[in-house]
Amino acid sequence: MSLKGRDLISIRDLSREEIEEVLKVAHRMIPIAEGSKIDRRLDGTLLALAFLEPSTRTRLSFETAAQRLGARCITIADPTTSSVVKGETLSDTIRMLSNYADAIVLRHPNEGAARLAAQTSDKPVINAGDGAGQHPTQTLLDLATIQEAHGTLNGLRVVLLGDLRYGRTVHSLAHALALFGAEIVLISPPTLKLPDEVTEHLDQMGAKVREEDQLHRAVRDADVLYVTRIQKERFGDETEYAKVAGSYRIDNAVLAGAKQRLIVMHPLPRLGEIAPEVDGSPHAAYFRQAFLGVPVRMALLSMILGAKGS
């Protein structure tokens, strides 16, 4: 099993063993990501970061990961100001970049863009989010966060809360959790339930999935509470949004009945789903989660580019 030279388009491209290997390598990258250890294993490699939809957080995380390992980056940070891509097809942009760089990280507003790029490029393509489609490095850093806090992924009870319909991170995460035998508890407004397609897929995988409607009850015996953004655009009117958003808000009172080991996660940025007072609680894992994006991306770059030591 090796990721060398491979694309990473969807979390479904990875087997359970491959995910475990990525998490293991990512764990060893933590001191390098923190700057307490120097490792230049990607010295001499060049990475193209094609952010054809701007996403500063994800781009900085990849840039940090690359540079900590000694790789250099060429970056399209904003397609609207880049003369290179104005009016050009994605296929042409990718063909050009694959002649320059050793691998391409792509963020794009259209679903399926990363799969197309992978077909066009003869260098590995890593999907950093394509529209409402896949975002596999987010899933991997979510798993890394759970694994670090609980020492395992197997047998945990994970509550997925909020917008389960449009939130792509949740669909990929649910797949990965099923792969590891976690129990999945769903809690969402009726109009934002997990799509049937995803539920069917989880059933086929033999996943343990159940719905819950009481937030307090869901939180009580959970090991992980994964909170997603609930966006205003999903609701017809402001008052309906405010009502729903209010009833799913996580604060210290909601967490009062939780297990001591419960961690609260969020893909960030948050809109108010988690009260700032939670930040200081031992349950808060979302900033750690954001940090772990760096070692996870270091591990992926190192493995895909075939660096020694990975």
Binding site: L90, S91, P109, N110, G112, A113, Q119, A132
Partner: peptide, 12 residues
Amino acid sequence: NPNCITNRGEPV
């Protein structure tokens, strides 16, 4: 899916 890359003028 109107937002699918195959519906956006790519040569595919």
